[in-house]
Amino acid sequence: MGAGAKHELVFVDRLLDTLVSLRHGVTHDVLACWFGVDRSTITRAIGEVRPLLAERGCPVAPGLRLRTLAEVIDHLGADGATGIIDGTEVRVRRPAAGRKDREKFISGKNKQNAVKSMVVTDAEGRLLFCSPAEPASCADITQARDLGLVKLLADCPFVEILADAGYQGLGAQTGGRVVTPTHRKFKENPPEWYEEMRERQSKAHSSRRIRPEHGIGHLKNWRALARHHGRREHMSDIIQAVAGLLSHQQTAMAANGTRM
Results as ranks from 00 to 15, higher is better:
Ala5His: 09
Leu15Asn: 00
Leu16Cys: 08
Asp17Gly: 11
Leu19Asn: 00
Ser21Glu: 13
Leu22Ile: 12
Leu22Cys: 07
His24Ala: 11
His24Ser: 13
Thr27Trp: 00
Val30His: 08
Cys33Gln: 14
Trp34Gly: 13
Ser40Gln: 13
Ile42Met: 09
Thr43Trp: 07
Thr43Ile: 07
Arg44Met: 10
Arg44Pro: 00
Ala45Lys: 03
Arg50Glu: 12
Arg50Met: 14
Leu52Asn: 00
Ala54Ile: 02
Glu55Asn: 05
Gly57Asn: 10
Val60Tyr: 03
Gly63Phe: 06
Arg65Ser: 13
Arg65Phe: 10
Thr68Lys: 06
Leu69Arg: 05
Ala70His: 09
Val72Leu: 08
Asp74Ser: 11
His75Thr: 01
Gly80Ala: 09
Gly80Lys: 07
Thr82Ser: 08
Gly87Asp: 10
Thr88His: 08
Val92Leu: 11
Arg93Ala: 14
Pro95Gly: 07
Pro95Asp: 14
Gly98Val: 10
Lys104His: 10
Lys104Ala: 12
Gly108Ala: 12
Lys109Gly: 04
Val115Ile: 08
Lys116Thr: 03
Met118His: 08
Thr121Pro: 02
Asp122Val: 10
Leu127Gln: 07
Leu127Lys: 02
Phe129Cys: 06
Phe129Met: 05
Ser137Pro: 01
Cys138Met: 15
Cys138Tyr: 06
Ala139Cys: 04
Asp140Gln: 10
Leu149Met: 06
Lys151Gly: 12
Ala154Tyr: 05
Pro157Gln: 04
Phe158His: 15
Ile161Ser: 03
Leu162Thr: 04
Ala165Glu: 06
Gly171Cys: 07
Val178Cys: 06
Val178Thr: 10
Thr180Asn: 03
His183Glu: 08
Arg184Phe: 04
Arg184Ile: 12
Lys185Val: 15
Lys187Phe: 01
Glu192Ser: 13
Tyr194Asn: 00
Glu195Pro: 00
Ser202Phe: 04
Ser202Lys: 15
Arg209Phe: 05
Ile210Ala: 15
Ile210Met: 09
Pro212Lys: 05
His214Ile: 11
Gly215Pro: 03
Lys220Met: 05
Asn221Ser: 08
Asn221Asp: 15
Trp222Gly: 09
Trp222Asp: 13
Ala224His: 00
Met235Glu: 02
Met235Ile: 04
Ser236Gln: 06
Ala243Trp: 02
Ser247Asp: 06
His248Cys: 11
Gln249His: 14
Gln249Trp: 05
Ala255Val: 02
Gly257Ser: 08
Gly257Cys: 07
Gly257Leu: 08
Met260Ile: 12
